[in-house]
Design a protein around this nucleic acid. Structure first.
Lengths: 148, 148
DNA sequence: ACCATATAGTCAAGCAGCTTGACCATCACG
DNA sequence: CGTGATGGTCAAGCTGCTTGACTATATGGT
């Protein structure tokens, strides 16, 4: 395969990913969850289902724990999460989602499902399913810097 | 298709895209092009092959023209691009890539091709080709905010 | 030919989100 | 039980973006 084909694939991949990110973010905001950024969604995926510490979040999001702590401040201030004492470590705090946080993630799921449905219209359900399988197989393991 | 499947697909897509972005950036830096950011790569794709104005770049990158102008300042300072007078509009300036800029894009192509080759090892060439075709078909048209 | 408006670009100031550095409280282990 | 490691926060600074204001040139109606 030629370099130019690799670039076309890469460009398409990044365009689809960027468009999806943008669309989910806008859709969630349109459903009344204002002030959310894509990074919050990535945080939610780590917070669910059992909560996480600030350090966990920092690793997951590929940022310093100070930045993660500031992000949690923001989530708490906006009512999406809260800090609870950690059951087994008095130094740590367990960050958990509030009901509003859960509602926000459900909204994000709905918007994502809507986008995927359009892809199904274009490609067919079978193709979308294989697309998902292939992406899962080539997805890097471990914490990936979300980069948005 | 259920919402959870849509989220799995979305997460995989974003993980692959984030990993690819990170990898290309690191690979390009490792080849001696220091100080480049992913946004520069997106700028390069618009600059090639005939150059572009600052306003073109701003639309392409989904940012204000002031930000695009600052980005061009940076590219010029680092030797990747230069400003030339626009042939048909005395207000505008044509931003074109230098030889170093071209070398940098070739390096990015090599790194991307390397990543795609690994996907081919995992999925097979035929599957990667259909993956590319499917992504091209669902890629949003027009300027997409790169989001990194 | 002229003027009104639109467009290309820059300068300047401000801000959001991240970083680095320093620090305290608590844990884990010799 | 003390010593280094770990979880978290505070404070300051930086980078890349934004908004606002401005100049120079182009465009189009009269």
């Amino acid at each position: 395969m030629q370099n130019s084909e690799a670039m076309a694939l890469s460009a398409a991949l990044l365009a689809v990913a960027g468009g999806l990110t943008q669309r989910i973010n806008e859709g969630v905001i349109a459903r009344g969850f204002d002030g959310v950024r894509p990074a919050h969604g990535f945080a939610f995926t780590r917070l669910a289902p059992d909560g996480a510490t600030v350090t966990d979040l920092a690793v997951h999001l590929g940022m310093t724990k100070q930045a993660a702590s500031q992000l949690v401040d923001e989530l708490v201030r906006k009512g999406y999460a809260e800090r609870r004492p950690h059951p087994r470590d008095a130094r740590a705090r367990l960050v958990v989602m509030t009901e509003r946080g859960w509602a926000c993630t459900r909204a994000a799921e709905e918007v994502a499902a809507e986008a995927v449905r359009e892809w199904t219209d274009l490609l067919g359900e079978r193709e979308v399913r294989t697309l998902a399988e292939q992406l899962l197989r080539i997805a890097p393991r471990g914490p990936v810097r979300p980069a948005w």
